[in-house]
Simulated assay, not measured.
Amino acid sequence: MTDSDTAVLDRIVDGTTAVLLCEADGTVVDERTLPVERLPEEGRHEGAVFELELEDETVRTVTYRPAETADRRAAMQERFDRLANRLGEE
């Protein structure tokens, strides 16, 4: 059986191990580790969004999602800006 998950790169440990947080409906539901070499080079940064193709719980392919990564980054910046404005008003 083939399945897919959305995952976000949380961190890279010792330059060798990628820690990915798997999500379902915006909630973290699992954590997977992969060798960094398995990630597409352009997505080897914190916050990068990937689609993981799974077969029997084994990661078969990892696809970088640059548009989704940019959307999330923009949404985070917008939230940060709103919070900063509120703090400036106090």
Rank of each mutant, 00 (worst) to 15 (best):
residue 30 D to C: 02
residue 39 L to I: 01
residue 34 L to E: 11
residue 87 L to C: 12
residue 44 R to H: 07
residue 83 L to E: 10
residue 4 S to H: 13
residue 82 R to F: 06
residue 50 F to L: 02
residue 56 D to A: 06
residue 61 T to G: 04
residue 54 L to W: 04
residue 34 L to M: 09
residue 37 E to A: 14
residue 36 V to K: 10
residue 65 R to E: 04
residue 7 A to N: 01
residue 18 A to I: 04
residue 70 A to C: 04
residue 73 R to V: 04
residue 24 A to F: 06
residue 80 F to K: 11
residue 48 A to G: 15
residue 47 G to C: 10
residue 7 A to W: 00
residue 79 R to P: 03
residue 13 V to A: 10
residue 76 M to T: 12
residue 90 E to D: 14
residue 3 D to N: 07
residue 26 G to A: 10
residue 10 D to N: 08
residue 37 E to F: 02
residue 9 L to C: 00
residue 34 L to H: 03
residue 28 V to W: 02
residue 85 N to D: 15
residue 88 G to M: 12
residue 70 A to T: 13
residue 40 P to A: 09
residue 41 E to M: 00
residue 59 V to A: 03
residue 49 V to F: 07
residue 32 R to Y: 01
residue 74 A to R: 14
residue 63 T to C: 04
residue 87 L to A: 15
residue 19 V to P: 13
residue 22 C to S: 11
residue 66 P to G: 07
residue 34 L to T: 05
residue 28 V to I: 11
residue 18 A to R: 05
residue 88 G to Q: 12
residue 74 A to G: 06
residue 17 T to G: 05
residue 56 D to E: 05
residue 44 R to G: 09
residue 2 T to H: 10
residue 9 L to K: 00
residue 46 E to W: 01
residue 7 A to R: 01
residue 16 T to M: 11
residue 16 T to N: 09
residue 58 T to G: 01
